[in-house]
Amino acid sequence: MYGLGILKGLGVTIRHFIDTYKDDVLYGFRKYSKSQDNFAVRQGTQATGAYTVQYPEEKVAVPERFRFTPFLVVNDADHESPGEDWCTSCGICSKVCPPQCIWIVRGTDPATGRPVPQPEAFFIDIDICMNCGFCAEFCPFDAIKMDHDYEMASYDRTSVNIHDKERLSKPFSYWMKIAPTTATEEADARGGWEHSDVIKEKKKKADAEAKAAAKAAAPAAPAPVAAAVGEAVAAPVAEAVAVAESAEDEEKKKAERLAKREAALARKKANKGD
C-alpha cells in the first residue's frame, strides 16, 4: 500500500517523542533531579529519546583525558617551596607544538649568566593552540598539562588570549583533582608525588645517607611501612578522592608527607636493588 512506509516512519517519530517524555510521566520528572545516578543513566547507553543536558544548570563533566588548553603545573601552596614551577624550560613542548604557539624564555642566573632550569616567561597563544595535547604528552617533567576548563569565552581577545605564566600556572593539586588516575600513573612512573628532579635529588641524598648508615653498620630499613605507603601511591586513588574528609592537623599532614616521600624513595631504591 502506498504510504505504508511513511506511516511506519511516523511511528518511529512518535516513539521518539514518547520516549523523551516517558520517564517524566512514569517517575515524575526524575531526570531533572540532582541525583548523579539518574544523570549517568540518562547519558549512558540506556538513554532513550532526547537526552538533553540542561546546561548551565547541569553540565556533563568531562572525562579525565579531555583536553582543552594547556596549563603549567606548580607546587601547591602547602608545599615547602610553594608556587615553584615544575617546568625546567627545556623547550621540548615548544618544539613539539604543531602550530608553534608556545613561547618560552629560558631563565638565566643573573650572577653567572648560565641557564637555570626555570622559565623566565612562558606564553601560549590560545588563538592558535589547536588543543592537540602534544605539549602535555611529550613534556619529560609532567610540567604542562591539558586543562578541563572550557568556559573561557571573552569579549576581547587581545587582552586575554595570550596566556602568560601567571595565567597558566595552576597548582599540582588541581591536576590531581581533574585527573586523579592519570596523575597517579604519572606519579608512579616518576617514583613519587614530587617533581622528578626533586625525587632524583632526594634519592641522591638518601643514597648518600644510606651509604653513611651502612658504614655505621646500622641497617636502617623501615621496609614494611615503606612498602605499604609505596603501594598507596600506586593504588588507584580515583574512587576515594571524591569523598571529602574532615580536617586533619598540620603536624600529621607534615609527618605523612615526609613518610610518603621516604616511602617513594625506599621503593625506588628497592626497585634498583632488584
Binding site: A40, K59, A61, E64, R65, I178
Partner: peptide
C-alpha cells in the same frame, strides 16, 4: 596515544558538573 581506559569516568571540576562513570568495555559492548 594511550590505551583504552578501564573506566569512562569524569571528575567534577566546574560548578554544576555531573559525573559519569562507566566500565569502558561494558559501554563498548552495549
Amino acid at each position: 596515544f594511550k590505551d583504552i581506559p578501564d573506566r569512562i569516568r569524569s571528575t567534577a571540576n566546574l560548578m554544576n558538573d555531573r559525573i559519569r562513570d562507566y566500565d569502558t568495555m561494558e559501554f563498548l559492548s552495549d
